[in-house]
């Protein structure tokens, strides 16, 4: 592998931690521990994003994954149940079969992925790099990610905002935003 840099060694560290946490989450039945480990998983993923050169994504993932998701999962856990039932043998084997089938499929496709970290792959020479070249002339702001997000792909971002809006409305409809009206609901 040519041109590898120091971040590769960080990669191995993060891989080991993520795999360990993922397998622990599967084994645990106590939902509180599972939720907390999910927050840790997101935080380590955010650290990996920094090492991969995606600072914007890392900020968002740290705030969302380790902050909001954990709070929401905790709230949902407190409103529902604290323990999960142990996995039955049938489910375990069924899941393993599905996982093996999907795993074989994705690993068959592994060879078609671009070489890790190379600058001359199709993925890294197309529109992404063109955005870097054009941003100083056309948008003239330092952060290319913001330029692409808000200007070049503004239509896409607008769709995402509407999806977030729709999800917010959905939760408000399901859970009754203001917290009132529980009585009327019971009276049915």
């Amino acid at each position: 592998m040519t041109g590898a840099d120091i971040t590769q060694y960080f990669d191995y560290l993060f891989m080991v931690m993520l795999l360990f946490i993922g397998l622990t989450i599967i084994r645990l039945q106590n939902l509180f521990a599972v939720v907390m480990l999910t927050g840790v998983y997101s935080l380590i993923a955010a650290a990996w994003f920094v090492s991969l050169g995606a600072a914007d994504v890392a900020i968002t993932e740290a705030a969302v994954g380790a902050g909001i998701s954990t709070v929401l999962l905790l709230a949902a856990m407190l409103l529902t149940a604290g323990e999960a039932k142990p996995t039955s043998a049938f489910r375990h084997w069924a899941a393993l079969v599905v996982m093996a089938a999907a795993g074989v499929a994705v690993f068959y496709a592994l060879g078609d992925l671009p070489v890790y970290g190379a600058a001359d792959t199709p993925a890294n020479t197309g529109p992404g790099m063109a955005y870097i070249e054009r941003t100083p002339d056309e948008i003239n702001i330092p952060n290319v990610v913001t330029a692409v997000l808000a200007s070049y792909r503004g239509f896409d971002t607008m769709g995402e905002v509407f999806v977030v809006f729709a999800a917010g409305v959905g939760v408000a409809l399901l859970l009754n935003l203001s917290g009132r009206g529980r009585r009327e609901e019971d009276g049915e």
Binding site: L72, A75, L79, F165, V171, L174, L175
Partner: peptide, 12 residues
Amino acid sequence: VIIAIFYGFAGR
């Protein structure tokens, strides 16, 4: 949306 989602869960 974040505040709304939180209020939704916390109001239950």
